[in-house]
Simulated scan of single mutants.
Amino acid sequence: MKAVFNTDRGKVRVHNEDSVRVFYGQNQLLGVVADGMGGHVAGEVASRLAVESAEKKWSELSGPLTKHEAVKWLNQLVRSMNVRVYDYAESHLECRGMGTTVAAAFCSADFIVVSTVGDSRVYIWREGNSASQITEDHTLVNELVKSGQITKEDAEVHPGKHVLMRALGTEPAIALDTVTLDWSKGSCLMICSDGLTNRLSNEWIGKKLGEKGSLQEKADQMIRDANDAGGEDNISLIIISHDSDGDES
């Protein structure tokens, strides 16, 4: 496996409130994207605390995990992230109300375990296929689409598009969405913040992941594409290739 990442402030925002990290272990890795929210620099604090929680918990791992162990471990991680951000906000007045999305993927050679809170996403791309979103947005518009009140096309221009129904750190406990799937040679995983997906379609993302070139070139190009399309938000992504060299997917 190989992973690369990139993050960019975008063309409008003053600060980059996204935090992105990849942690490597024994034939396994963890990728985390957190998109912070809150007044002043509180969003930046929230996303940083989430990633720091991941770093601490990853450092405590003693060896490779089975799929069952990885599900339990990742769920515990996301809960610990939530508590860390919530407790910090409660004890720091300037950070009251802050929160962050998170999209985390635990990857081994045979399986992937994904957990998300908010509207940061995870996509899987398999050779010969388009990219598929394997996570669900915890947003107002997605709830409206699911209930049949609006169409997916309406959701793209809905004024409540950015309203989150779930975020880390805003409540003392959090509901979890955890997905497991198998993957194999020729597959790529992408974890990203909504600064990317609000500007680039799923079709465009699949096209870019399937092009020749190194993972870093693909990541950098998608950042440029999102900025060229407006760049109103911070833009972050991680691309993880199942193949050991990862450079020609």
Score class of each variant (00 low, 15 high):
Glu136Thr: 15
Lys161Phe: 01
Asp87Cys: 08
Ser147Tyr: 07
Gln133Thr: 11
Thr151Phe: 04
Ile134Pro: 04
Ser108Lys: 01
Gly118His: 11
Arg121Met: 10
Lys152Val: 13
Asn142Thr: 13
Met81Asp: 02
Ala173Asn: 10
Pro159Thr: 07
Gly160Ile: 05
Val157Phe: 10
Tyr86Pro: 00
Gly169Asp: 03
Val163Arg: 08
Thr178Cys: 05
Gln149Thr: 12
Ala167Arg: 03
Asp137Gln: 12
Gly118Gln: 07
Leu181Asp: 02
Lys146His: 14
Tyr88Pro: 00
Ala105Gly: 10
Asp137Thr: 06
Asp154Gln: 15
His92Phe: 09
Ala167Val: 06
Ala155Asp: 06
Ser120His: 10
Val157Thr: 15
Arg96Glu: 12
Trp125Lys: 12
Arg166Ala: 05
Asp119Ile: 03
Ala105Lys: 03
Thr180Glu: 12
Lys146Thr: 12
Asp154Tyr: 02
Leu164Ile: 08
Asn129Lys: 15
Asp119Thr: 09
Trp125Cys: 05
Val102Glu: 04
Cys95Ala: 15
Glu127Ala: 13
Tyr88Leu: 03
Ala167Thr: 06
Thr139Gly: 04
Thr180Gln: 11
Val83Leu: 13
Asp154Trp: 02
Glu127Phe: 11
Glu94Ile: 10
His158Pro: 04
Asn82Cys: 09
His158Met: 02
Leu144Pro: 02
Asn75Gly: 15
Ser115Pro: 04
Asp119Ala: 06
Asp177Leu: 08
Ala167Asp: 01
Leu144Phe: 09
Asp177Gly: 04
Leu77Arg: 06
Glu90Leu: 15
Glu143Arg: 14
Val145Asn: 03
Trp125Ser: 09
Gly160Tyr: 01
Ala175Arg: 13
Val122Trp: 02
Arg121Ser: 05
Ala89Glu: 04
Thr178Gln: 03
Arg79Cys: 12
Asn75Val: 10
Asp87Ala: 10
Met165Asp: 03
Phe106Asn: 00
Leu93Asn: 12
Val141Phe: 01
Ser108Trp: 00
Ala89Arg: 00
Ala155Cys: 09
His138Leu: 10
Leu74Tyr: 06
Leu168Arg: 02
Asp110Gly: 11
Thr100Gln: 07
Glu90Gly: 11
Arg96Ser: 14
Ala104Glu: 02
Glu171Ser: 14
Ile112Gly: 00
Leu74Phe: 09
Ser91Asp: 13
Gly160Arg: 02
Phe111Asn: 03
Arg121Cys: 06
Thr170Trp: 00
Ala131Arg: 01
Leu144Ala: 03
